[in-house]
Design a protein around this nucleic acid. Structure first.
Length: 834
RNA sequence: GCGAGAGUGGCGGAAUUGGCAGACGCACUGGACUUAGGAUCCAGCGGGAUAACCGUGGGGGUUCGACUCCCCCCUCUCGCACCA
C-alpha cells in the first residue's frame, strides 16, 4: 500500500481520531484515585468557523491536557459553546430564521472542525449556553442572588449602544465606545437589573495577591486598576443659608484647611436647588446642558479645558468656617465618589488651573522641606510636608496630621473614614432577544416578582420572529408576555430583558464538572473534586471583563453554598494573537489564513506543530506560509526516519534500560543525547510551558538520530539505542502532534497507545559523559576549546589550559595574575601586560 | 502622566538564570543525486581585507567574565487615564 511509505496525514489523522473516540480515552469521572487536573480553554462563540486564534488557543490547551495525562493526572478537558449573542440575531434577521437555527448549525460545523484537529476533549460534557438545560440554572442563580440581596433593580443613567440597541456594563465600554462594535456609547435613563459585584470589591482585590504566582502580572494590575480602591474620608460641608450639606470624598483630608472652593458635577443632585434663584440661572443651565450632552470620550479627555460656573451659593469649611464658593465644574464626575470635590488649589493641579481661571484664592497648607511654596505657584504641590495655615495643627507632619484630622472630624461628627471603589455594580439587563430571560414577572399589584423556582426555566420562545429593525421581539410577543402573577394570581407581564452574555461565561467552568445534571446546576461532590480550574488559557482581551465577572460569580456561589472555592482559575495563561503581515487577521484586511485549508494541505499535526513552535505561547505569533512548510518538512523527516529503520527497531520503550558499560562510544553518545533531550524537554514543557524550545529539543534529537544511524554501522547495541531514542522522540512529541506519533508508535510494534503512556524519565547516570568540552578564555575572551576527561582535577585542567597552543599565544608577554576554573565548563586566565 | 511588557542575524526566535551569543526553524548560497526539482542529502550562513577586532537599543558601572546584575537615557507595544 502507498500509505506504508509516504506520510499521509489526512489518512492517519482520521484513523486515530476515530480510534480515540472508540476507546473513550478522554472521558473522565470524579470517582478516581488519581490526582485531578482541570485544563480549560476559553470556550468559543459559535460564529461560524474556527479561526487561527482558536486553533492556537486550543492547541496549547490540548498539549497541556495530554501532557498532564501522561504525568498521571486525572485530566478533565471539556469544550462547549458561548452560544448567546448578537451576531445570531443579525444572522437570523438576514436569513429570516430563528437565531437558534443559525447557532446550532454553526456549533455542529465548528465541532467537526475541532474534531479534525484531534483535540482530546471529553465531549460528553459539551454544553451550549443557549440551551434551556443550561440557562435554567443561571435563572436559578439569579433568584438565589436576589434572595441574598445581590440583585437589585434601579433606574439609572446607563450606557446605551445605538448600534447594538442595548445597554452595556461599564466594563464593556472601552474608552467611550462599545467593546463589540466601536459605536460611541450614549447615556440613557433606564430601569435595569444590577448584580452587586461591589459587595465583593474588597475581596476581589485582596484575592489578587493569592493569584500572583499563577496569573500574569499585567492582568492582575489591570484588575487592581479597574477595582480602583482608594482610602480617604467623606466630609460634610454646610451650605450657607440653606439647610443642606454637601458631602465630598477626599483622600487628602490633610489639605482640608486649604480648601477654598467647592466643585460639583453638573449632574449632582443639589445643583438644581442651588441655582434655583440665581440671577444667571439660564446661563448656568446652558453650561450644564453643554457638558452633559458631550460624549464620554471628550468629556473625560485630559485635554478638555477645565471650565465651570459659579452657582451663587457658598458653603462653609467645617474646620475654619471660611466661606467657599460653590462651582459646577466640567471635570467632576458624578459617578465617582460623591460627585463633589473640595477644591484645594495649592495641592491639586486641576484645582489650581481652575482657581487661576476664575481668580479664586490659593492657600498653601502643606509646606515641603526643600522649597518654600507661595500662593503664586505655577504647579500644585501634592507631596507630604509640614502643616501650615492649619490652626492648632501647624507644624505637624502632614501624614500624621491626616490621622489627627480624621479622628477630629469623626469625633465632631463632621466626617468619617471611608473606602471608595471605582468598580460599579454590574448592569446585566440587555434589551436583546438572544439571551437568557431574566426570571421576573411584573404584577400590577405586587410589582416585580421572581418567577417561582418550579416554573424555571423561563424559555426563550421558539416561535419568535425577529423584527427587521433589529429590536428584540419579546416586548411584543403576547404569548411570552402574558402570565399571571405568582403571588396574587393577578395580571402579570414578563420581564423582556435578557441577561448579559457574560453571565453565562461566569460559571460554565463549574457546569462542566457535571454538565448533564438535570436536577441541579452541578453535583457538589463533582465540583469539589474538579474545581478550581488548574490551568485556564485564553486571550488577554478578557483581562477584566470575563475574568472579573467569573471571580465575582465564584465568590457569590460560594456564599450561597454551591461552591467551596475562592477563586475559579489557579493559573492563567494569556496567549498572544495570531498575526499575518504584522496585523491581526481580519476579513477587512484580507489577511485571514483559514485553518481548514491548512489542515487539508498539511494535516492537523503540522498546523498544531507550527502554532506551538513559531513562538512562545504568551507572545504574538506571526503566521508564515514558508515556516509552516518547515513544520510539515520536519514531520516528513521524522516519518522517513522511522520508516527507514522500522525493520530493525523494537518496542523497547523510551529511555530503555541499558548497561552503559557495554555500549560503544557512539551508542553511549546517542543515549546521552536522548536523556539530555528528555531532561530539557521535560523542563520546557512541564515547568515552563515553553513548547517552542521543547520542539527545538526534539528536533535536535531527531538530527542526532539521523547522524547516529549512519555512524553506528552495525555496532552491537544499535537496535536498542536507536529504538529507545526514537521511542523517546515519539513520546515527547505526542502531546503536540498526537496522530503521527501514535501511528509511528504502533508501527514500531507497541501494543498500547501513546495516549495512555507515561511521560518518560531520564536517568541521571546516562547524562554523564566521559569527555567534556571546556572553553578556555584569556581575560574573559574565548581563545580555545579542548576536550578533557570529565573527572579531570582542577590542577590538571589548569595545566592543560596553560599549555594549550592557541592559549599560549595570548598569554605571551604578560603576567598571569590568576586563573578561574569552572569544572566541566571553562578556564579563564587573567593576564596583566608587563 | 501611571501601570505592565519588549528591544538579540535578512526573519521567527534560543541562551541551564553571571560562563562558547545566535540553539531550533525559515529564507538565502554552494554542492551531490537527478530527464527534472519547489523532493531529498551534504556543506555554509552576525559584521569585517576571513587578520586584528567589532557585535544582544544607547551610555556608564560592578565582575576574572555581563544578553543576563546596578545606575542613567532612547524607542516600541499593550492597558488605564481629569478617580478628587
Amino acid at each position: 500500500m502507498v500509505m506504508n511509505n509516504r506520510y499521509n496525514p489526512l489518512e492517519i489523522e482520521a484513523k486515530w481520531q476515530k480510534q480515540w473516540e472508540r476507546s473513550q480515552n478522554f472521558l473522565v469521572t470524579h470517582r478516581d484515585h488519581r490526582p485531578k487536573y482541570y485544563v480549560l480553554e476559553m470556550f468559543p462563540y459559535p460564529s461560524g468557523r474556527i479561526h487561527m486564534g482558536h486553533v492556537r488557543n486550543y492547541s496549547i490547551g490540548d498539549v497541556v491536557a495530554r501532557l498532564k495525562r501522561m504525568q498521571g493526572f486525572n485530566v478533565i478537558h471539556p469544550m462547549g459553546w458561548d452560544a448567546f449573542g448578537l451576531p445570531a440575531e443579525n444572522a437570523a434577521i438576514k436569513n429570516r430564521t430563528h437565531p437558534a437555527k443559525w447557532t446550532y448549525e454553526n456549533i455542529s460545523y465548528m465541532k467537526a472542525e475541532l474534531r479534525k484537529l484531534g483535540y482530546s476533549y471529553d465531549w460528553t460534557r459539551e454544553l451550549a449556553t443557549c440551551h434551556p438545560g443550561y440557562y435554567k440554572w443561571e435563572q436559578l442563580f439569579f433568584l438565589r442572588f436576589m434572595e441574598k440581596g445581590l440583585v437589585y433593580r434601579k433606574k439609572a443613567p446607563v450606557n446605551w449602544c445605538p448600534e447594538c440597541l442595548t445597554v452595556l456594563a461599564n466594563e464593556q465600554v472601552e474608552a467611550g465606545v462599545c467593546w463589540r462594535c466601536d459605536s460611541v456609547v450614549e447615556k440613557k435613563e433606564l430601569a435595569q437589573w444590577f448584580l452587586r459585584i461591589t459587595s465583593y470589591a474588597e475581596e476581589l482585590l485582596e484575592c489578587l495577591d493569592s493569584l500572583s504566582h499563577g496569573w500574569p502580572e499585567r492582568v492582575i494590575a489591570m484588575q487592581k486598576n479597574w477595582i480602583g480602591k482608594s482610602t480617604g474620608m467623606e466630609i460634610d460641608f454646610q451650605v450657607e443659608g440653606l439647610n443642606r450639606k454637601i458631602r465630598v470624598f477626599t483622600t487628602r483630608h490633610d489639605t482640608l484647611f486649604g480648601a477654598t472652593f467647592m466643585s460639583l458635577a453638573p449632574e449632582h443632585e443639589l445643583v438644581q436647588e442651588l441655582i434655583k434663584d440665581s440671577p444667571d440661572r439660564e446661563g448656568i443651565i446652558g453650561f450644564i446642558d453643554n457638558v452633559t450632552r458631550m460624549d464620554r470620550i471628550s468629556r473625560t479627555s485630559e485635554n478638555l479645558e477645565k471650565e465651570g460656573c459659579f452657582t451663587g451659593k457658598y458653603c462653609l469649611n467645617p474646620v475654619n468656617g471660611e466661606r467657599m464658593p460653590i462651582f459646577i465644574a466640567n471635570f467632576v464626575l458624578v459617578e465617582y465618589g460623591t460627585g463633589a470635590v473640595m477644591a484645594v488649589p495649592a495641592h491639586d493641579q486641576r484645582d489650581l488651573e481652575f482657581a487661576r481661571k476664575y481668580d479664586l484664592p490659593v492657600k498653601v497648607v502643606v509646606q515641603p522641606e526643600d522649597i518654600s511654596l507661595q500662593a503664586d505657584m505655577e504647579t500644585a504641590y501634592s507631596g507630604a510636608g509640614t502643616m501650615v495655615n492649619s490652626g492648632q495643627f501647624d507644624g505637624m507632619f502632614s501624614e500624621n496630621f491626616k490621622e489627627a484630622i480624621a479622628d477630629y472630624l469623626e469625633h465632631e461628627g463632621l466626617g468619617k473614614r471611608t473606602v471608595n471603589f471605582r468598580l460599579r455594580d454590574w448592569n446585566i439587563s440587555r434589551q436583546r432577544f438572544w439571551g437568557a430571560p431574566i426570571p421576573i414577572i411584573y404584577c400590577e399589584k405586587c410589582g416585580p416578582v421572581p418567577v417561582p423556582e418550579k416554573d424555571l426555566p423561563v424559555i426563550l420562545p421558539q416561535d419568535a420572529r425577529m423584527p427587521e429593525d433589529g429590536r428584540s421581539p419579546l416586548p411584543e410577543l403576547e404569548s411570552f408576555l402574558n402570565v399571571s402573577c405568582p403571588v396574587c394570581g393577578g395580571v402579570g407581564r414578563r420581564e423582556t430583558d435578557t441577561m448579559d452574555t457574560f453571565v453565562e461565561s461566569s460559571w460554565y467552568f463549574a457546569r462542566f464538572t457535571d454538565a448533564r445534571n438535570d436536577n441541579q446546576p452541578f453535583d457538589k461532590e463533582a465540583a469539589r473534586y474538579w474545581l478550581p480550574v488548574d490551568q485556564y488559557i485564553g486571550g488577554i482581551e478578557h483581562a477584566i471583563l470575563h475574568l472579573l465577572y467569573s471571580r465575582f460569580f465564584v465568590k457569590a456561589l460560594r456564599d450561597l453554598g454551591y461552591l467551596d472555592i475562592d477563586e475559579p482559575f489557579s493559573n492563567l495563561l494569556t496567549q498572544g494573537m495570531v498575526l499575518k503581515d504584522g496585523a491581526k487577521m481580519s476579513k477587512s484586511k484580507g489577511n485571514v489564513v483559514d485553518p481548514d485549508e491548512m489542515i487539508n494541505k498539511f494535516g492537523a499535526d503540522t498546523v498544531r506543530l507550527f502554532c506551538l513552535f513559531a513562538s512562545p505561547p504568551e507572545k504574538d505569533l506571526e503566521w508564515s506560509d514558508s515556516a509552516i512548510e518547515g513544520a510539515f518538512r520536519f514531520l516528513n523527516r521524522l516519518w522517513r526516519l522511522v520508516m527507514e529503520l522500522l525493520p530493525e527497531l523494537r518496542p523497547t520503550g523510551p529511555c530503555a534500560v541499558l548497561d552503559q558499560d557495554f555500549l560503544s562510544e557512539g551508542e553511549k553518545s546517542l543515549r546521552t543525547k536522548e536523556h539530555e533531550s528528555i531532561q530539557k524537554i521535560t523542563r520546557d514543557m512541564i515547568d515552563k510551558f515553553q513548547f517552542n524550545t521543547a520542539i527545538a529539543g526534539a528536533m535536535e534529537l531527531v538530527n542526532a538520530i539521523y547522524q547516529s544511524k549512519d555512524e553506528l554501522g552495525d555496532s552491537p547495541n544499535r537496535c536498542e539505542v536507536l529504538s529507545s531514542a526514537i521511542s523517546s522522540v515519539l513520546t515527547v512529541l505526542s502531546p503536540i502532534t498526537p496522530h503521527v506519533c501514535e501511528e509511528l508508535w504502533t508501527r514500531l510494534g507497541y501494543d498500547y497507545p501513546l495516549s495512555q503512556s507515561s511521560w518518560p524519565r531520564h536517568d541521571d547516570r546516562a547524562l554523564l559523559r566521559d569527555e567534556v568540552l571546556v572553553v578556555i578564555q584569556v581575560n574573559g575572551r574565548l581563545r580555545s576549546k579542548m576536550s578533557v576527561p570529565a573527572d579531570i582535577s582542577r590542577e590538571e585542567l589548569r595545566r592543560l589550559a596553560l599549555n594549550d597552543e592557541k592559549t599560549l599565544k595570548h598569554i605571551q608577554g604578560g603576567d598571569i595574575i590568576k586563573t578561574v576554573i569552572i569544572p566541566q565548563k571553562l578556564v579563564n586566565i587573567v593576564v596583566k601586560n608587563r
